[in-house]
Design a protein around this nucleic acid. Structure first.
Length: 271
DNA sequence: ATGCGGACCTGTTAGC
DNA sequence: TGCTAACAGGTCCGCA
């Protein structure tokens, strides 16, 4: 499900119900996610206050005084606030119940997500330590991508989806950003000029921030902290639009496979 | 070092 | 209409 905008929307949506709140109880119905939920999670979290909630890449970081819970939503995960007693459904794997009466409910049909616990700085955690810059910061600019990409032969789409290069860009927004930048997804990363990287950087930042403003993209099952979908789907230009006319030139959108992922582009506008 | 394919799991849809 | 294969927002791992 979620790329950076969807995780950011989730973070913003649940934050008012989570930050400053005391954990009363944790109910784990399914421990086997991408990695097993650590046994230590329950006793580490119980009776603790969530003092801070941050997003890093597609990870959500719930800080307590004694450590940090790290949540990743994988492909199909979602987190929402449940106010009244709603019975859990089939894929509602974890409930974190606060003393306020609100419950943070984790759902993940495909179980590609993860819930982890670390006593140490989460940025030093194995899964986070190698991550590249956040795309919406000043650190992510054309010189950076240009230098890193020299001699890289992989397609530009795969390059910008590599979390060691830059985080948060998944299949939807990689396709969309490349369309707006006029770059064909198959272009080798090392062959793209600095001018074109400048354009790409602008378009990545634009598409991500615009998607956040629209509440993220819901294709099938993304919901925000209130259980509502996002509306950026209406703004998509190429993703899932194979055969549709390009909004700019009316050429039918092409679909190919790149790195096992569906890849969409306009063969006329993107070169 | 880099790039690629497979793996994880369940649900939905396209195609025969 | 019904069955099956392919595909779905992610990303780690192991191999060439």
């Amino acid at each position: 499900m979620p790329e950076l905008p969807e995780v950011e929307i989730t973070c913003q949506g649940i934050s008012p119900f989570v930050v400053g709140q005391t954990v009363k109880e944790i109910i784990i119905r399914e421990r086997q996610l991408r990695w097993p939920i650590p046994i230590a999670l329950k006793r580490s979290l119980k009776n603790k206050i969530i003092i801070k909630l941050n997003r890093r890449a597609k990870y959500l970081l719930f800080y307590t005084g004694n450590g940090c819970m790290i949540i990743h939503l994988g492909m199909s995960g979602s987190l929402r606030i449940v106010k009244d007693v709603e019975p859990p459904e089939r894929h509602d794997h974890v409930d974190i119940i606060f003393k306020s009466g609100h419950t943070l409910r984790y759902r993940d049909p495909r179980k590609f997500g993860s819930i982890l616990w670390t006593k140490h700085d989460p940025m030093k955690h194995m899964l986070l330590s190698h991550l590249g810059p956040e795309p919406l910061t000043h650190e992510f600019q054309a010189d950076y991508l240009y230098v890193l990409s020299r001699k890289r032969t992989k397609p530009i789409k795969n390059f910008i989806m590599d979390s060691r290069i830059v985080v948060g860009i998944g299949n939807i927004y990689a396709n969309e950003a490349l369309y707006h930048a006029g770059i064909r997804p198959t272009q080798k990363a090392g062959k793209i000029s600095k001018i074109r990287y400048k354009r790409l950087i602008v378009e990545i930042k634009n598409v991500l921030s615009h998607a956040i403003k629209k509440g993220g993209t819901t294709i099938r099952d993304f919901i925000n902290g209130e259980g509502k979908p996002g509306y950026f789907k209406n703004e998509l230009q190429v993703y899932d639009k194979a055969g549709h006319p390009c909004n700019s030139c009316k050429t039918a959108i092409t679909i190919i496979r790149l790195g096992q992922r569906s890849t969409f582009y306009c063969a006329n506008c993107q070169t």
